[in-house]
Design a protein around this nucleic acid. Structure first.
Lengths: 196, 196
DNA sequence: TTGATTTGTGATTAACCAATCGCAAATATA
DNA sequence: TATATTTGCGATTGGTTAATCACAAATCAA
């Protein structure tokens, strides 16, 4: 007991994500988080001003961590199509190990109740899509991808595909193996972006 | 006052969908529905046994109506690719006019809290995907689509795309025109399924 | 060691919620 | 018309929730 607040904040965020993953965002009450962490409900408010602040911090933290994990796919070595293929695989792998992320990210609760949080989520999504677009543009320049593509629109379609898959996986309670979806998904995407 | 219960049930379902569309599923309280319809909160329970029963009825009703609307695309006349293109367009158009549907359909609240409702949603989605798969198979037989495609897997990818788009639209609070997304979406899909 | 700040907790509060109940008005039935 | 059933509503109830507060323990600074 008596841990520094930064440690507690991390524990609380983790706890919130764990509860969201296990039982859905709507069950993430301050009491549920406290039980998960092993502290009193009121202790939560020593480290966060409000419940929404927990969600906000969770989105910002996991969003940043995820982008950092995927960074090599955007700026690393290798051809553009190899890196795009790797991005799909890494993305699904990352979410497999962080099930709370799609639950929170796709919960309409957050966006409507907290405009600030909505901004956070939208920023993460825009950032992500923008990087995919750059990767596509790079591949088009190197004839990995079809030059007639619109990189921005195509990027948003790729993000939609991944989001649709993640949402289905989340909504269907993680009852299929996400990692094994990456190969057929890449084959589909590959067909859509390859040069004629 | 004193309307027959079937009329009231329809009004209440409509009211619930309207509130979900405007302010999110989590704000769909019996009080909010009652205000929307213009009746007392307790009157809700004259026509529905519980709040969950309202959601269940809403999903069943709108799910059936949607499949009925899209039926011509699956079993109607025209080439397979024309009908698939039309399906995209009609699907987005339908949801444009029924914004509450994606909000409810993609809410984790329902799936986790009500197993019965989860079954309903999964049945609708499986039915939908299965029909898309049949349409793909038909197009493959007629050389509209590439013969090397796996129709089931490809169908699930098409559904993911649509779901991803709808979710993004819902999450971003309907702040872009959904109908104008159908053309570029079809171009993307067309690339992925066309013969070599 | 002493005094101040931080962290933790139980009790409490005020708001919100789904659902119930008694009673009144409306509607249907005879 | 007379009576029974349905529909509507205000008041209420029991449960849940985020957030506050006074007070205690632990940690830190001097």
């Amino acid at each position: 007991m008596g841990k520094p607040t930064e440690t507690r904040r991390a524990e609380i965020i983790e706890g919130a994500l764990a509860v969201a993953a296990e039982r859905g965002v709507n069950t993430v009450t301050t009491q549920a988080i406290a039980d998960q962490v092993g502290i009193a409900q009121s202790t939560i408010f020593r480290h966060f001003k409000s419940r929404d602040e927990i969600f906000s911090a969770a989105v910002n933290r996991t969003g940043a961590t995820m982008l950092q994990t995927l960074e090599p796919c955007f700026s690393g070595a290798g051809s553009a199509d190899q890196r795009l293929c790797k991005l799909i695989r890494l993305q699904l792998e990352y979410v497999s190990n962080n099930k709370g992320l799609p639950r929170i990210l796709f919960s309409d609760r957050l966006h409507i109740e907290s405009p600030e949080l909505k901004q956070s989520v939208q920023r993460v999504m825009r950032n992500y899509t923008s990087r995919v677009s750059q990767l596509l543009q790079e591949g088009m320049d190197n004839d990995c991808f079809d030059r007639s593509l619109d990189p921005d629109i195509t990027a948003s379609h790729l993000v939609m595909l991944i989001q649709g898959l993640l949402m289905r996986w989340s909504v269907f309670d993680f009852d299929f193996d996400l990692d094994s979806e990456s190969q057929p998904l890449w084959e589909f995407i590959s067909r859509a972006v390859r040069p004629n």
